[in-house]
Nucleic acid binder design. Sequence first.
DNA 1: TATTAATAACTGACTGGTCGGTTATTTATT
DNA 2: AATAAATAACCGACCAGTCAGTTATTAATA
Lengths: 221, 221
Amino acid sequence: MQHPKKTAKDETTRAPRWRRRAEARPAEIFDAALTVFSARGFQAARLEEVAKVAGISKGTLYLYFESKTALFEAMALELMRVPVLAGLDAVAQAPSAREALLGLMQTMGRMLGDPRRSALPKLIISESAGFPELARIWLQTVIQPVRARLVEFVERGIATGEFRAVDPWETAKLVMAPFLLTAIWMRTFEGLDDRPFDAAALIRQHTDMLLRGLAPAASGD
Amino acid sequence: MQHPKKTAKDETTRAPRWRRRAEARPAEIFDAALTVFSARGFQAARLEEVAKVAGISKGTLYLYFESKTALFEAMALELMRVPVLAGLDAVAQAPSAREALLGLMQTMGRMLGDPRRSALPKLIISESAGFPELARIWLQTVIQPVRARLVEFVERGIATGEFRAVDPWETAKLVMAPFLLTAIWMRTFEGLDDRPFDAAALIRQHTDMLLRGLAPAASGD
DNA sequence: TATTAATAACTGACTGGTCGGTTATTTATT
DNA sequence: AATAAATAACCGACCAGTCAGTTATTAATA
């Protein structure tokens, strides 16, 4: 049988079974992988399902990634690479320590609103046993830089008298804790609890409490 | 071929290969299961290894538990059953809201010191996708009661004028967040970070910040 | 432009190894 | 001797990873 008249580029539109889309694939696979790995966890995730969600066959996955492990790692690294910290330097330029701190918290709050990025912490934490290297990288590329900034802001605030003298390192952890709680809660208990989780309200309250906790004593310490 | 000279049962009590210990087994298996499941995650954990750690054979596991899933669930439930909340009512008897709050935080802090119990949160969170029922039970038996108490204490403090008027629900989450951070950190990043994690210092700082954040405005709001 | 050849992208049936779970057998206890 | 407890060899479902073949796309040729 001869080839059918595909030459009729005038709209015979015979949908091909698939298309070559070598450029678009990786991103789509990352998307699918995040979805499936998030929903099932790394081990329980089936590559067949990742492929299905990505709209390709399992074999095709292996044209782009060496192994299931490599796919997971590449995906996680890809999501980390994204400007998690892009705003950090800008925020640091704020005229006061207070504003810098608030700016950073706002940035983190926005990140929680992006389902893709807010999925990463729980995934890294959950799979840290099997991928210690990934935990290490997350620590180095995300946690430590953010923490360093927070420490810096707190120290600056103390120096300028905006804040009272607290331990900057412990305070940095306290600043981050509610964000972690939120990221985890949304992906673990949301829908099971009788009360909806209002991330915005939590962060508002967090900010309020934090600023009061940092305020210098009104008169004498 | 006949059996080799085992007939030499000169009965001088050489250790028998095993003993009947039907009563002690379950606890030992739980211990082993917690260790292995914590280290590897549910899916990656091998029953062979659980058995080895428990000092028995894989087959013996099945004398006590229906399946890998049943073992995991039974273990998690067993750890929840333990007096997580035993101190709750006692703490609630404290003369002031402030003391009740501090008492509860102290209890939670102590819990983090017990490696067995502090392992549970991360395990539940990590496996929540595969065991949504367990997440629900954890929510109901641990999180919600603790949260309810916290809300109650905060409301009481506001009523008595010990605390300023904050949102008790959001505040309850803020109280818990650093404990969650600690539980997760210790089992995820500890050893990778350049700074050791000082849980006690964090809780001290947390307490300090919290009380200041809750303090009524010195003069006018 | 039409046809053919060459290549890159993709598919899906297949396989080999890995455990969860079972069972025939051995060992301890009563 | 009878029974209960534990073992270890075994089985088979499941799935990551492979590969021989198929289809789309591009390049070369007429």
